[in-house]
Simulated assay, not measured.
Amino acid sequence: MRPAFKPLLFALWLLPLHLQAAEDTAPALPEPSAAQTQLRELEQRLAASERQRAALSAELQAGSGERESAQVQRLRQENQRLKLQLKRTQAESPARLLSDQQTWFAIGAGAGLLGVIIGALLRGNRRTRREWIN
């Protein structure tokens, strides 16, 4: 035999011993009937939990729906009250004569006209250009 095959043969000789030791230390599986019983019990608990969850969810939705509808109703009433108050305020306030843009235009025109009048008054009796030069 070649020396390269000795470790391989030794490993093959130890393999059955290793497998037997692994079987001895493996945890014992529960009986199939006990596992099935435990599975059925867990399924029943899951179904009961699902029913409780559905009942609580429905109760929560019903409670929040009532709260939301009451809140929506209050907000609608307040909205109607504010609309009515706005209409009253608009009816009571006098209509504006000029808009902001028109007001500024009038102020500018007034300033220009005032400048022309003051200029004419300051000119006085001087009609010719010679009078400007002393």
Rank of each mutant, 00 (worst) to 15 (best):
E68L: 15
Q73W: 01
A95H: 04
A22M: 12
R81K: 04
A95Q: 06
E23I: 01
A26Q: 02
F5T: 09
N134T: 06
P32M: 03
Q77D: 13
L82K: 00
R74N: 13
G119K: 11
E43G: 09
A28T: 07
E41I: 10
Q20A: 13
Q85F: 02
G124S: 04
R76I: 10
G65C: 00
T89N: 07
R81E: 04
D24Q: 11
R88V: 06
S64Q: 14
E78A: 14
W13E: 10
L19F: 02
Q77M: 06
Q20E: 07
D24Y: 05
A26G: 00
G124W: 06
T37D: 02
R53D: 13
K87Y: 02
I117T: 11
T103K: 10
A62W: 02
V116I: 15
R126Y: 06
A70Y: 03
F10I: 09
A62K: 08
A95Y: 03
Q102M: 07
N125P: 05
S49W: 05
T25C: 03
R126V: 04
E31Y: 03
Q102K: 07
N134D: 11
A91N: 11
E31C: 01
L29M: 00
L86V: 09
E43D: 14
L75Q: 15
E59K: 09
Q38H: 05
R81A: 10
S99D: 04
A111C: 10
P30D: 00
S57M: 12
L84M: 07
R127V: 08
A109C: 09
P3D: 12
R130S: 12
E31L: 06
A95C: 03
A22G: 05
V72M: 12
E78D: 14
L121P: 05
L17Y: 00
N134C: 00
N79R: 08
W132F: 10
L42W: 09
Q36E: 14
A47R: 08
Q85I: 01
A62Q: 15
Q61A: 14
S99V: 00
T25I: 14
E78I: 01
F105V: 08
L114N: 05
N79Y: 05
E43L: 14
W132H: 09
D24E: 07
R123D: 07
Q52T: 11
E41Q: 15
K6N: 07
S93A: 14
Q44H: 13
L84E: 10
E66W: 01
Q90Y: 05
E23C: 02
E92G: 04
L84R: 07
R67L: 15
R81Q: 06
A4G: 02
W104R: 14
F105N: 08
F5Q: 11
G110Q: 08
G63K: 15
E43W: 08
A48Q: 14
E131C: 06
L39S: 12
D100T: 11
R81L: 00
A58W: 02
R53T: 15
A21M: 02
G63C: 10
A22E: 12
T128W: 12
E43M: 13
A48N: 10
A21Y: 01
E68S: 15
S99T: 10
V116P: 03
T37N: 04
L15C: 10
P27F: 00
K6D: 07
R51W: 06
R130M: 11
G65D: 11
T89S: 11
I133D: 09
Q85T: 02
T103V: 11
A26K: 05
